[in-house]
């Protein structure tokens, strides 16, 4: 695979980074929702549908809190851990200065996203008076990445971490894009997503370029070993456990009788099959193609069920 020279995104960062260009999102005084109905199936449960509209609203607000909490964990604990190490030259694989410099801009963007998300969460609490229920302290990636790393010898762990972060950065991008199109949502919520998306577009390319550079500079054995660990990572990444636990907790927080809770809980799915039609798999597949990983025969074979 021939490698293209790395081109820094610093110029476009100056003119397009949301931290530099976007006003704060302020909650509007309207009846639109805080979270898309179609991302929270609980709202369509026949029991919930019969309950007061306030119950649905409560579920949506709590779901937004969880979403924001996930963003904060993802940006500050997952992406920025890796990005900061790359920027400071502490990552076990040394990237060229341009990459490191760009990585620092990613750190800024992601921390800023976390700040904006916290600010918005604060605004929602002020306006609705709804306090968040206990939010998860980790996201799926918090478990999936260490789990993937511990299967590998130390010299391959950094590479796997890089690819895992790159995969998740690319998946989240498309997820956020879908979010921002819902007409029943408040403009400020959508704006939050649009802002996020504006930076993530740049990040997605950044991570792809880093993976390309890394992949081109490691030996075949490393490619085989790391490529072989990707399927396990994807499987662990796309689990539903944390969401399921949260949904259970959310149901328990509702002011309804135990029997109704039980009926709703019975319908919270425990897991979903991960097939090539899984909505996030399409994004992952796209990443694998764009980063060149899918052109690696052994890696592609391991991932064949997603293609």
């Amino acid at each position: 695979m021939s490698e293209q020279p790395y081109v820094s995104h610093s110029d476009s960062w100056e003119s397009t980074a949301t931290i530099r260009n976007r006003p704060r999102r302020v909650i509007e005084d309207d009846n639109l929702r805080y979270y898309p109905m179609n991302r929270q199936p609980l709202c369509t449960h026949p029991v919930i549908v019969q309950l007061d509209q306030k119950v649905q609203d409560l579920i949506l607000v709590q779901s937004l809190y969880k979403y924001i909490n996930d963003i904060i964990i993802f940006e500050t604990e997952i992406v920025n851990k890796t990005a900061r190490e790359i920027a400071k030259g502490n990552f076990p694989f040394l990237f060229p200065f341009d990459c490191r410099y760009d990585a620092m801009s990613v750190v800024i963007d992601e921390d800023y996203h976390a700040y904006v998300a916290m600010n918005y969460m604060h605004q929602v609490q002020e306006r609705t008076g709804i306090a968040p229920i206990e939010l998860p302290s980790e996201i799926e990636l918090s478990r999936a990445i260490p789990r993937a790393l511990c299967t590998l010898a130390p010299q391959y762990q950094a590479g796997m971490e890089l690819i895992a972060v790159a995969i998740s950065e690319n998946t989240v991008t498309a997820e956020v894009a879908a979010f921002s199109k819902d007409p029943s949502l408040k403009r400020s919520v959508k704006g939050l997503m649009v802002d996020h998306l504006a930076d993530e577009g740049r990040h997605s390319i950044f991570w792809i370029n880093l993976v390309k550079h890394y992949w081109a500079n490691i030996d075949e054995e490393a490619r085989i070993v790391i490529g072989g660990a990707i399927p396990g990572f994807i499987e662990a990444y796309l689990t539903n456990e944390i969401q399921m636990l949260f949904d259970h907790r959310l149901v328990e927080s509702l002011d309804i009788s135990e029997v109704l809770m039980e009926k709703i809980r019975e319908d919270i799915p425990t897991s979903y099959p991960i097939t090539k039609n899984h909505p996030m798999i399409a994004n992952i597949r796209n990443f694998l193609k764009r980063s060149g990983l899918s052109q690696h025969e052994a890696t592609r074979t391991g991932l064949s069920r997603y293609f």
Binding site: N38, R39, P41, T44, H45, P46, N240, D267, P269, Y272, P273, T275, N277, H278, P279
Partner: peptide, 16 residues
Amino acid sequence: FFDLGGHSLLVSRMIL
């Protein structure tokens, strides 16, 4: 169901 374009969000809706 999943080959027909069904996914996690749709499966609950369908079952319900």
